[in-house]
Each structure stands twice: as structure tokens, then as C-alpha cells.
Write a protein that binds this DNA or RNA. Structure first.
Lengths: 259, 259
DNA sequence: AGATCGAAGTTGTATGGCCAACACCTAGTT
DNA sequence: AACTAGGTGTTGGCCATACAACTTCGATCT
């Protein structure tokens, strides 16, 4: 029963997938107990360490608890999106049954501003490709994306047709992979460009997500500011004692000059 | 009372703390390389496995990359908040040098609505304690919090004075610990109560965070909806191929009636 | 009835080992 | 000069073991 010589997923990931599937299919139910590590190790014919690696994945995704002395408990039934889905607007849109579209509104090379230099970790004289992209869900404007790419990546992105649906998927084919992303979420007001393209009024509130993505080596790939029309999207985050990927950030109130 | 009756931190956590400290003190710099696992194992006189556990923590917090073949690279210099800080408004406020305050606006027992029943995993006939709390930063209103507690926890919370600064810290002393939390972030409009208490206009946009916290056993502890005045807070999330605690959530657009 | 103790079951911490997969550099080849 | 092959260093995957710390539950004792 082999004949499967292709890119083999590590065993612990296969097992995690199976368990994840069982959980989202309500095999245990919220609050239900998983089998013990030992029992799972026997069932899958692997060592306890491999089972632990698999369960650690589910733990970090917030699907199960983990506590000394008792079996693991199912926290949540809901299927968790892959990282790849969070990373790509197009993939996410398709997964919820909508048709994603993208239109380049503006595109051009500029010398990097201080913010871009810090985020993309590039020199003062380096240039970036700035792209403004309108994203649509089944024909309706949903989000406006303003992205800065460093020189090397910009050279690739520049060649894409203006209506490319998924930049991420194209870049993957070119061998560019996103491994990490940091997101800052807050609220912004629509500027005239936002308003014109998203079809709202100037000063209307928008959900803002600023994001820096990096490749597996830790090299910044993009620095982007996305503005979503409210009511169509929410961000869901899980954190725990076992992993703390979420923080609050204080924003110093803007001091109005008094004269 | 002998020498060291306290709970000892595991070795890998101690090592993670030291490395975390070294990173935030810019000992390696963003893009810098960490020593190899073997070198660290020798320095700390532990096995490679222990070092790997320590580095895993930093990996999940988004401080370093992790890639086969090369040494780990520092992704970010910024200090990461503890889970405990994200979980408690008061602790967070103090960590940024502000004085937290809290005032109970309303408090009372109600029979749980369907949403509360699902989130808190309780029966149809169960009651919840609903508490509306205004949170202030150094005297200025910052956030309005509407929380539902299940019966057992409500009985404790109910006894607290109306101006308790940190509910979380009180509960910890009572032996109640939060281990997991799931946050949903989007945008909301101020209702009359929001407006009156936060000092904004009705329909003004607010940053909304809905949160369900659970204890180490996976039992829901609270279901809360927090509304922040914009401009004072942002949420920062890290996710990666190694851990995917963040997802987008689709919200079905509200159909406007056309007549 | 209620409290205490202890055994069984379970996960956490740590060690040690082995090989595979991969990145990176160097030396040699073309 | 450009390309190739190989060697070295490094992390990933997996195994086996041992003991510690903790939860739970039943039995025993008061």
C-alpha cells in the first residue's frame, strides 16, 4: 500500500490532521476527553514523543487543553484555518464560497520612507514597489490593500497582470514562501481614495490590518496596510498560557497642538 | 518551611527567559543569528532536547525563525507581553505606565441567552451574572466591558466592590486561573450606553473585542464583549507556519431592506 | 458522613541517541 | 568565469527510557 514517494509529510503532522479531523467531526465533542498519549501511540504505532508533537499542534491552535494529570479536553469544535488561508485573501475567499477578485489601482517604484525601511529592514537608498490593490468578494468591494515590496520581490510582482487574483499563489510558484506574519489590528477612517474605491463616505470607519510578512529565513517580504469595509470580516485569535502570540499595543493619543 | 517550597520553573522556561531577555536587549539584533542548539546545550549544561523546548517557546512568540539547515534568526527585537498581561486590563495598563480603574455600572443575574449558553457551555435553565464595567486609563474612559459569568464564578465576582481594579488578579487569589482565550476582533457602533459612558456620540465607531476565556480544564470562565475607544489601543498578533492561532471570519452582510 | 490516604492513570520534564534533510561554503572541474 | 560536487555544520524527525508532578477516584479510617 505504498507507491507514494512524493513529498512526505512528517508522521506527527499526518496524525495531527487525523485528530483535527476527528475533532471537527465532533467525534469527542466540546468538553470531551481525548484518548491518552499512550493509547494514541499504540493506535498509530509511533512513539509517545511523536504523539506529543501532534497534540502540541492542536494545543497551539486552541483545539485542546493540556494539563498534567488528566487527559486532554476538546476546547472547540470549529475548524481552524490553515496559515496559508490567513495569508492569502484569495484562498480565504474561496474557502468561504466567495469569488475573489483583485485590481491594481496604482503601482510604482518609490524610495522607501522611514516606516518601510524599518519594517522591510532595508537601507536608506533602497527603493520599494508600492502597489494599491482593490480586493472584491463576489463582485463587491471588500478591502483596499496598500503594500510595499522590497526591490527583489517588487521586480517579480511588477510583472503581474493588473487583475491577478492571488499574488500569494503566484509568488509560491516562483519559490517565494511566507513563513511568519505580524498583524496589527485597529480602526482607521476612510480617506478620499478609500471612499472612492470601497464605495463609502470619507471618514467612515474601516477595520485596519497592518501586516509584515517574512520568509523562512526571516527576511521581510512585504509591508502592507489593509482596510476592510466593516461588517464583512472579523479577526479571530487564540492565545493561551502555552503560547502568547497576541498582545495589546498602546497608541499614544495624538496631541493636538494648541496654537 | 524548608529551603525552596515554591514551585520551581522548569529548566527550559528559565533558559527561554534568559534568551528572550538577551534578544530584547539587542544582543543579536534583528536578522542576527542565535548560537546553535549544540552550543547552547553546552553553555547551559542541558541536553539538546531541553534547548529545543526553550527555543520552541521563542518560535511560537514570533521572536525567532526556525529552519532546517541554518541557525535560528532573530525576527523581532520587541518585548512580547505575557499571556497574563493580555488577559488582564489592569496588568496591561500598569505595564504601559497608566493607572487602571474600573467601575461597575450594572450587575445582575439573568437566565442565559442562547449565545451565552453556547459560549459558556451551560444548560438552558442556568443563570449567568452579567456585569457592565467601565475601564479607565489614568482617569480617561477607555473601554466598556460587558461580561457574562457562569453561576459558580458569578457568585465570587458578585461579592467584589464596585471599584475593584483587577478582577483577574482577585480571581487568581481565589484559585481561578485563565489558561486559554479566544478573541474575535471587529468594529461596532456605539449604542446609547456606550456613548454616555465612554463620552462619544451614538453611532461612533468602536473597536470591539469579544472574548471567551477558559480555565486549564477547558471549562469556560467568562464571555465578554469589550468596546474600546479608537486611537488608544491596537491588537498585535503573530502567526506562522509553526502555529496558526489567527483566522479570518466571514460575517454575512446584513441585507438592507429595499422598501 | 466526612476526612484522609494511597494507588492507578496521565501528562510534563529531561536525557541520549540516530539519521535525514537542508543551507552554506569551498575546492575542484569544466 | 561559471558551474558542480562534496564536505561540514545545523536543525528536523523519531525513538526509547526514566522519573516527577498532578488528577481522580476508591478504600480506609475516624
Amino acid at each position: 500500500m505504498r507507491g507514494d514517494p512524493v513529498t512526505r509529510e512528517p508522521r506527527y503532522r499526518q496524525i495531527a490532521e487525523e485528530l483535527r479531523h476527528a475533532i471537527t467531526e465532533h467525534a469527542y465533542g466540546p468538553g470531551g476527553k481525548l484518548p491518552s498519549e499512550g493509547a494514541l501511540a499504540e493506535r498509530y504505532e509511533v512513539s509517545r514523543g511523536t504523539i506529543r508533537q501532534a497534540l502540541m499542534l492542536l494545543r497551539h491552535d486552541g483545539l485542546v487543553t493540556s494539563r498534567r494529570g488528566t487527559r486532554r479536553v476538546v476546547l472547540d469544535d470549529a475548524p481552524v484555518q490553515e496559515f496559508a488561508q490567513m495569508q492569502s485573501f484569495a484562498r480565504w475567499a474561496r474557502s468561504i464560497g466567495e469569488t475573489p477578485e483583485g485590481r491594481v489601482i496604482r503601482q510604482g517604484w518609490h524610495s522607501a520612507d522611514p516606516d518601510e525601511r524599518r519594517q522591510l529592514r532595508i537601507d536608506a537608498d533602497a527603493r520599494v514597489l508600492r502597489v494599491v490593490r482593490l480586493r472584491l468578494l463576489s463582485g463587491r468591494p471588500a478591502m483596499l490593500e496598500r503594500t510595499a515590496y522590497p526591490e527583489a520581490l517588487g521586480a517579480i510582482v511588477e510583472t503581474l497582470p493588473a487583475d491577478t487574483v492571488s499574488v500569494t499563489e503566484f509568488l509560491e510558484q516562483a519559490g517565494v514562501f511566507v513563513a511568519d506574519a505580524e498583524h496589527t489590528i485597529d480602526l482607521a477612517r476612510a480617506d478620499p481614495q478609500d471612499a472612492a474605491l470601497l464605495g463609502c463616505a470619507v471618514e467612515d470607519p474601516l477595520l485596519r490590518e497592518r501586516r509584515r510578512s517574512t520568509d523562512p529565513a526571516g527576511v521581510p517580504l512585504e509591508w502592507s496596510e489593509d482596510r476592510y469595509l466593516p461588517g464583512s470580516v472579523a479577526f479571530v485569535v487564540h492565545n493561551s498560557l502555552a503560547s502568547t502570540p497576541m498582545t495589546r499595543q498602546h497608541m499614544v493619543p495624538v496631541v493636538r497642538d494648541s496654537g
